[in-house]
Computed example of a mutant assay.
Amino acid sequence: MNQEKIGKFIAELRKENNMTQMELADKLKVTDRAISKWENGRGLPDVSLFEPLCKELNISINELLKGEKTKENNIEHLSVETMMSYNRYIKRKEKQKMFLLLIIIVIVLCTFLTMAILSFNKTFFETKYTSDFVSGVSIPIPKHSYYRGTGGMDVYTTKLKTLKQPDGINIFINRYLCSLEKVEYDNEIYYYDQENNFTILQYRINNDGIGFINTIYITYTEGRIES
């Protein structure tokens, strides 16, 4: 069944009968948008409209579904054939609608589950990371960084995942580190937070090789490393 062909056929017959889309719509008790949709090949009339539509256009249902005028001989056979074709069309459209609905439901569920998980994440909606291990450690972090855990003994490393790119994150990190006291130890530069009494040993962003996902590493320790 050629939906576009049927639409052009309806438009051609409507014009032959000197009717506007609005006039035909009024006769069928539908909107002119519905008529436009049919004629542009973006849909077909409901089965309940076949008879009144064909009456207005002076054609048979068989001719409507074939999208062209037919000869009277063998019309019964053609009607069965075209009706079977229309039934296949309806079933195909129903499957497409169900598939689209399923996709929408999956997207909505995935979005809901993602937001639910992130809402319980200790860093995603925060602008500071508060250590579970060292009292007083509160480190500024880029918003929407996803907490992945902390490991270490005397030195702790926190890993955060982010979709933000390194250039912007590096500006954020440098601005924060510049607000701290620089401490040189064993030919390395560290950063001491005097107010909260902890030292930043590293604060950097690294691409994981996955493209747009990056990992932020924050390594810190209690107290001040003496130079």
Rank of each mutant, 00 (worst) to 15 (best):
P140E: 05
P166T: 06
N73I: 05
F99I: 10
K143A: 03
I139Y: 03
L101G: 04
G149Q: 03
E126W: 05
K122M: 14
S60C: 06
I90V: 15
L100E: 14
E76W: 03
K161R: 10
K93Q: 14
R148I: 00
I90M: 13
V108E: 05
E94G: 06
P142A: 06
T114A: 06
Y146I: 09
E181R: 14
F120L: 14
R148W: 00
F133P: 08
E81W: 02
T130A: 14
I105Y: 09
G151A: 03
T127A: 15
L118E: 11
T127H: 14
G136F: 03
Q96T: 04
S85E: 10
I61Y: 00
L64C: 07
A116L: 07
R175S: 12
I90Y: 02
S60V: 00
M115D: 10
F172Y: 06
L102R: 12
V80S: 07
V108F: 13
S145K: 01
R88Y: 01
F172D: 00
M98D: 11
L65R: 02
V106P: 13
I139A: 04
V106L: 15
K93L: 09
D167Y: 14
T150K: 12
K95R: 13
T70S: 15
S138L: 01
P166A: 07
L163K: 11
V137H: 06
G136A: 11
R148G: 11
L78M: 10
N87A: 07
K182P: 04
G136P: 09
I139M: 06
M83N: 02
C178S: 13
F99Q: 15
T82A: 13
E181W: 04
P140M: 08
C110D: 09
L64P: 03
I141P: 01
A116T: 05
S135Y: 07
K91N: 11
